[in-house]
Amino acid sequence: MITRISITYGTKQVLSKLQTRFPDRPLLLLDSSTSGEQLALLDVSGQESVFSSPIHYDIKLHRGTTDWQGFVNFIYVDNLSADDQKVMNSKANHFVTTDPMPDGMRSIYFMKDEKNRSNNIILSTWDNADDFSLWKKEASFKPFSYFLTTQYNYHEASYHFFKPEVK
């Protein structure tokens, strides 16, 4: 199992060149689901980064497939007190190790930002965006809803795998 994921952002031209330059690396080109052509390159090799400006996430918990397909969502939560951090760790641990995975969820990763340990990231992969939207309304998501406020700098980023337009 990998212990770290790295991500960088850029243009299609720059990120595609990285993929070409490192063909043996699993570098996944992601396109923002909400704004289109806002691209990210995800390195899921667990190796030292080949990016010039990487953001590294240390994987604390993982369950599910390592076959990257479908819809990808990042939930970011930080600015937690020591007590809130314990609660978040407990809820994430229980969900990832105990609760059944929701319909359509392919994998879930609970991660920490390497530079800012108070930044919690829940990375999930799904068959499609609708499955993710349904999960946010289910009881299994409820333990995380406490943190979905601006007080905790909650924000999300959703992606799908980049597919160039066919002309």
Rank of each mutant, 00 (worst) to 15 (best):
Q85D: 12
S118M: 06
D78V: 01
K86M: 06
I75H: 10
Q13I: 07
F51P: 11
L134Y: 06
V87W: 08
F74S: 00
L148F: 07
R63Y: 00
D84I: 05
Y9E: 07
T8M: 01
A82Y: 07
D58L: 13
N89C: 02
R106W: 03
T8W: 00
H56I: 14
R4A: 04
S35E: 14
S158Q: 10
G70K: 01
Y159I: 08
P102R: 07
L148E: 14
I121R: 04
Q69M: 01
S133M: 08
S107R: 10
K112L: 13
L30M: 10
G104C: 12
I59T: 12
G70E: 03
S16G: 03
L80A: 02
S32V: 10
L134S: 01
Q13Y: 13
F95Q: 03
Y9C: 01
D58I: 11
I55A: 06
I108W: 09
A139N: 06
V14D: 12
N119L: 13
S81P: 00
T34Q: 15
P100D: 09
I121F: 05
Y57V: 11
F74P: 00
F132M: 15
S52C: 02
L15E: 02
I55T: 13
V72L: 04
T11E: 12
M88P: 03
I5L: 12
P100Y: 07
L42S: 12
F162T: 14
Q47S: 12
F147E: 09
S140W: 03
T149S: 15
L15M: 05
E114T: 07
G64K: 10
V72E: 01
A157Q: 05
K136C: 06
L41Q: 14
K60G: 02
V96H: 03
Y76W: 05
Y154H: 14
R25Y: 07
F51W: 06
A82T: 04
H160N: 14
D103Q: 14
W126A: 00
Q13T: 08
L61H: 05
N128M: 02
T66P: 01
P54L: 12
T66W: 02
A40V: 14
L148Y: 03
T98N: 08
D99V: 09
I55L: 11
D103N: 12
T20D: 14
P26D: 13
S35A: 10
D67C: 00
V44S: 15
T3Y: 03
Q85A: 08
F74E: 04
H56C: 06
A157K: 06
E138G: 07
L41G: 09
D78H: 12
K137F: 04
D113Q: 08
P102C: 08
K115I: 14
S53F: 07
S33P: 06
I7P: 00
K17N: 06
L30E: 10
N119G: 05
P164N: 08
L29F: 05
R25G: 11
D31S: 15
S35T: 15
Y146D: 04
